[in-house]
Simulated scan of single mutants.
Amino acid sequence: MSEENGIPDELAPEPAVPDLSAGIPTTDQVVADLREFYAAVLEYPREMVNPDTNIEFDLGVDSMQQTELLVRVVARYGLEPEEVNASVYLTLTDVADYVVDRLKSTSRT
């Protein structure tokens, strides 16, 4: 586990990167992927990571960890990083909505 951000450096393999060839995924599809991703990265049982679980209060993820996780999520979906306050995305559903919105805006350009 990294001393700097509390996120494990060496993990079991992360879930496969989502296949975006079929188009933009739904929020529910992204949430399902994020449940697997967050559970693997944070080393929590998948059952503890639910769509409406509060990332900070229920999972104990501080703002620095939230930023690191959001950077990794954005990269998983092939999006360019942007400066954003990760702590405003309180739940996996919030993060999924952000990802889907970014994917939609990227596909329009």
Score class of each variant (00 low, 15 high):
residue 3 E to H: 09
residue 6 G to I: 04
residue 8 P to S: 13
residue 12 A to L: 11
residue 12 A to S: 13
residue 12 A to H: 11
residue 14 E to N: 13
residue 15 P to L: 14
residue 16 A to M: 05
residue 17 V to S: 04
residue 17 V to T: 09
residue 19 D to N: 11
residue 20 L to S: 05
residue 20 L to F: 13
residue 23 G to L: 04
residue 24 I to E: 09
residue 30 V to H: 09
residue 32 A to E: 15
residue 33 D to R: 03
residue 33 D to G: 01
residue 33 D to M: 09
residue 35 R to E: 10
residue 35 R to D: 00
residue 38 Y to D: 04
residue 39 A to F: 05
residue 40 A to L: 04
residue 40 A to C: 14
residue 41 V to A: 13
residue 43 E to Q: 11
residue 46 R to C: 00
residue 46 R to A: 06
residue 49 V to E: 03
residue 50 N to K: 15
residue 50 N to W: 08
residue 51 P to F: 15
residue 54 N to K: 14
residue 54 N to A: 08
residue 55 I to Y: 02
residue 58 D to Y: 06
residue 61 V to M: 14
residue 62 D to P: 01
residue 64 M to A: 04
residue 66 Q to C: 02
residue 68 E to Q: 10
residue 68 E to M: 05
residue 73 V to L: 02
residue 74 V to T: 15
residue 75 A to C: 03
residue 75 A to T: 01
residue 75 A to Q: 14
residue 75 A to K: 11
residue 76 R to F: 04
residue 76 R to P: 00
residue 76 R to T: 00
residue 78 G to A: 07
residue 79 L to I: 02
residue 80 E to C: 01
residue 81 P to H: 09
residue 87 S to F: 13
residue 89 Y to F: 14
residue 94 D to R: 05
residue 96 A to T: 01
residue 99 V to I: 14
residue 100 V to I: 06
residue 103 L to N: 10
residue 103 L to D: 13
residue 103 L to Y: 05
residue 104 K to A: 15
residue 104 K to L: 12
residue 105 S to F: 12
residue 108 R to L: 15
residue 108 R to K: 15
residue 109 T to A: 03
residue 109 T to M: 05
